[in-house]
Simulated scan of single mutants.
Amino acid sequence: MRMLKKLGRAVAVATLGAGLSAGAMAESTVNIGFTGPLSGGAALYGENTLSGLRMAADEINADGGFDINGETYKVNIISLDDRYSPAQAATNAKRLKQESNVPAVFVPHSGGIFALQDFNEQDDFLIMAYTSVPTVTEKGNSMTLRIPPTFDGYVKAFTDYALEHEGKKLGMGGATHEYAKIWSSMIEKAWTSKGGEVVANNPMDYNKSADFYTGVSRIVASEPDVMFVGGASEPTGLVVQQARQLGFQGGFIVMDQAKIDEVAEVAGGLDMMNGAIGVVPLSVYETDAAKNFITRYEDKYGKTPGSEAAFNYLALHGLVKAMDMAETTEPKKIRATMNEAMSKLDPSKNPYEVTEVTEKGGFVTDTTLAVVEDGKIVQKEIENQ
């Protein structure tokens, strides 16, 4: 009977995915879920997100785990591929909750997040939302935590800079997934409200195609001063590359999902990106916390991390800190402790120095803007931030 009570209190040990040794399986384990694109055009984006979670989990476990009421727990990440499909993300989340009793599911796309918000409060799990769509936390879902800053700040800053420095004519070639549609709608509205003209609007499926010549050629033919592009970094790089090959010489507004340095690797170098406006890449940050994280990530994975890895890394450390402080794996109590937990998180585990969570569930982070000038990424100040 005592053994049954103990098992009832513990979070279920992983039944999905391999990776724990027989010895580790005997330990008390908190399963943390992930559903995201691990195949298809956005696979690199999904893997980059997951790498941050795995790095945080490895560190937590190597440090001996964490304590809940005198019992030591380790972290086990259970990852499922949803191929960027909201319906599959919902199916995965149901499976993660029912089979592995996860208190939280990390999701790196807005379509999946909105799908999970239909039932996560009832099913009692936190959504760890890696998306900058503002409505994710404006909907009033009490069990959603939005990890990056909202993109409405990016829309205003990027639009203002492009209109001032690049020209008035915008050709739109963003992606077709839900997140990109929302971004596109907002930037079109902002652009035209400030006197700009949209001369082409040709969204493309960044997740299924590797040849964007037809769509890009239609945009280039409209002779824009600026192109709006963006989905995952890898296909965005192909769009930029093909635009240059078709003779486009203007600037780019790069949706925040894509990172300038990662886009440049695919496009053919930063010289191909001159005039591009986007989020400041983590690699450009000069803070000790960011540099420390970059060094450790490069040692572990052999490549420079992007913001997907860094934000999800700090979010998992914050989540575990909240469980430790709340002395429970109950999602509602974890959520109630998140703000305090982030304020007390070890700076070495917090590359973006997030120390506050709003009442609506948003991690508080400054909006940033970078521009590629003469083949170099230059950070710019944003007025009225």
Rank of each mutant, 00 (worst) to 15 (best):
L270F: 02
T144M: 02
A200I: 06
K139R: 15
M323L: 07
G173F: 07
M323Q: 08
H177S: 12
F106M: 06
D118P: 01
M255S: 12
T135I: 11
E99S: 06
G140I: 05
N69H: 04
A93W: 08
V378K: 13
E373Y: 00
H317N: 11
V320N: 04
L345I: 11
Y213H: 14
P351L: 00
F34C: 13
M255R: 03
K97A: 15
S343P: 10
S222F: 04
G230D: 03
L238D: 05
L4I: 04
G230M: 00
V30K: 04
D118S: 10
A264Q: 05
G250V: 03
L316I: 09
T131M: 04
G111F: 06
D123I: 03
T214K: 10
A267R: 03
D271Q: 09
V199N: 10
I78L: 14
K360D: 15
E47K: 15
V220C: 02
D256I: 13
Q122A: 13
K344T: 02
K169G: 05
S209D: 14
P103Q: 08
Y73R: 09
A22V: 14
N292D: 14
T144C: 06
N48W: 12
E47P: 04
G195D: 02
V198D: 03
I187L: 12
M143R: 10
K303N: 13
M323W: 11
L369R: 07
